[in-house]
């Protein structure tokens, strides 16, 4: 177990849980503007992203498919005195939730390309093309994003930005890149998604 300080909060990292990294910080920065009532975090890992804005939320539902990650997140909310706002669930993306509206939805999913086809490490592998989680997220998002709500997620330029934006468009929503950081071989972006505003006559 390691321990670090992320955006003013104490964060412990359990064995086997994805530690706060560049992509985590990129999403934290993108979320800095604006508060929200009810939020949903998917692929929450240590919970560091949600924790960074938990002060500004009424409640946050945090999900991860890995039971150790959810336990880790709960521990971090307790350590920072914010567990009263947290509802933690072990589950696969939106699947354990009934259709409802969140003001804010965010996710830092596993998106690394994994062309080997071998057993996948769920904490980082995005499957072939890295889109295993991203595609399912975009497909399900419409049923959970409030009318005025916004969703933010991280992906790599290698996953195909246009592919995501086209898919978002196809689901009747609007996506745009709101932040970007470049590395040697790839870039990381945060994509923001909103419902398409009603057409004016």
């Amino acid at each position: 177990m390691s321990r670090l300080r992320v955006d003013g909060k104490d964060v412990v990292v359990f064995q086997g849980v994805y530690p706060p990294s560049e992509d985590t910080f990129l999403l934290i920065d993108a979320l800095r503007s604006g508060a929200a009532g009810g939020a949903l975090e998917l692929c929450c890992g240590t919970g560091a992203v949600g924790l960074s804005i938990a002060d500004k939320l009424d409640s946050i539902t945090a999900l991860d498919i890995n039971p150790i990650a959810v336990k880790n997140a709960r521990q971090n909310y307790m350590n920072n005195g914010l567990s009263g706002r947290l509802d933690a669930v072990v589950g696969d993306l939106f699947s354990p939730l009934k259709k409802q509206s969140f003001d804010l939805i965010f996710m830092n999913p596993p998106y690394l390309l994994d062309e080997e086809g071998g057993p996948e490490d769920l904490s980082w592998s995005g499957g072939e093309g890295g889109r295993r989680i991203i595609d399912r997220f975009i497909e399900g998002l419409g049923g959970f994003l409030g009318e005025e709500g916004r969703a933010l997620f991280v992906q790599s330029t290698l996953n195909g930005i246009d592919e995501s934006l086209d898919m978002i468009n196809g689901e009747g929503m609007v996506g745009r890149v709101v932040s970007k950081v470049n590395f040697q071989f790839e870039g990381l972006v945060v994509i923001e998604v909103r419902h398409r505003p009603p057409q004016k006559d």
Binding site: I65, P67, V90, D92, S95
Partner: peptide, 15 residues
């Protein structure tokens, strides 16, 4: 519900 956390996984991912 284990240690205050509901485990809501699909069949093939349950422990």
């Amino acid at each position: 519900i284990i240690e205050s956390i509901p485990h809501m996984l699909p069949d093939d991912l349950r422990d």
